[in-house]
Amino acid sequence: MPQTSPETTARYRILVLGASYGSLLSTKLMLAGHHATLVCREATAAIFNAEGSTVRMPVRGQEGLIEVDSGSLPGLLQAASPEKVAPAEFDLVVLAMQEPQYSAPGVRELIGRVAASGVPTMAITNMPLLPYLARIPGLETASLRPCFLEPELWDAFDPDLMTLCSPDPQAFRPPEEKPNVLQVRLPTNFKAAAFANEAHTAILRKLDAGIEAARFESPEHGALELPVKLRVYDSVFVPLAKWAMLMAGNYRCVRSEEMRPIKDAVHGDLEASQAVYDWVVGVCIELGGDNSDFVPFGKYAKAASALASPSSAARALAGGAKNIERVDKLVALVAAQQGKQLDVVDETVALVEKWLSHNRAA
């Protein structure tokens, strides 16, 4: 059984919207002894409830992938469709879906119940939701509403009950597997900002400590420390560190006629990429961030050299998506509030708009 320290034995009930990416965090939570309920389609929920979840991840010092089945963990896993969930029964709600997905029938109504429940909510997303943006001093959120598919969904949330977590770990569903199987490609850490209320932040810190202390008992390898931790930061700007990466790489995969790999978007014109990166970091620093909140461009560029595929946003647009997360537009509008503008960023926003218009007209 996983080992936990005496200080981390409190068990929380955590509701996770989004069973794909959400199953990664839920696995780490269950390893630390907490109980997770995944929200997904009814057919998918039936598979999770019958078979549990399986997460495969690379572990330092081990060959191949380590397979973690939820049935072997001390915490409990359940899954349910949106209409069967009562958010008030949980200690924490985690939003682990793409922003446009919250407008889906059933999910939209669940979001309303989450807001009404008063339960602290952590969004794992590159696209900070409007209640979180309201926590950033001096940021005027009314002009940012066009970046969201359905901004009124978020109006009922108390900003003090919303925090943001950067989705740094990369994982995917192997296409040949059932939907309860997830494979981790990049086992980095989740980076969460503190809540406005220290009592709610204390929940995150206990989760952080419990995940750090837990060990997975592998039948073949014994007690293993698994990667992908939950780190909690006082700064509200730490989860925004991805903005510069997204704007220098991911969204610049989008071209007029076709998409290009992230490594080409970054290294095709390294000087232009650094100009975008530094400009976005500057926008965040003017908001109140600190240089220490952000990854140096050189480190990012080195990592980007191994990213041989277009970004998920670019692939979605090429596949006909009518809506994607609009971090590109959000960054441009935040910068405009500061009187800043960059041609390369405006060109990227225009290209994304062009693809979306084409897809919506198809």
Rank of each mutant, 00 (worst) to 15 (best):
N126Y: 11
P137V: 04
R145W: 05
P128K: 08
S81L: 05
G118D: 07
S143C: 10
Q101Y: 09
S70Y: 04
R135Q: 08
D158H: 08
L110K: 00
T125P: 03
A115P: 00
T163P: 00
Y132F: 15
D69P: 14
A80I: 13
K84V: 14
P100Y: 11
T163V: 09
A156S: 12
S103Q: 12
K84I: 13
L76E: 14
A88G: 11
S70D: 00
E109T: 08
R108Q: 14
D91V: 05
V114W: 08
C147P: 05
A123N: 04
E140T: 15
P131N: 07
S70Q: 02
G106I: 01
L95A: 09
V107C: 00
L92A: 03
A142M: 11
P105Q: 03
A123M: 00
I111F: 04
C165I: 04
P120R: 05
L129W: 10
E89D: 14
L73P: 00
A96G: 06
E150S: 15
P131L: 12
V68G: 00
Q98W: 07
S117M: 06
V68D: 02
P131C: 09
L110S: 04
Y102D: 03
V107K: 07
S81W: 10
A115F: 06
E140V: 12
W154L: 01
L153K: 08
Q78V: 13
G112A: 10
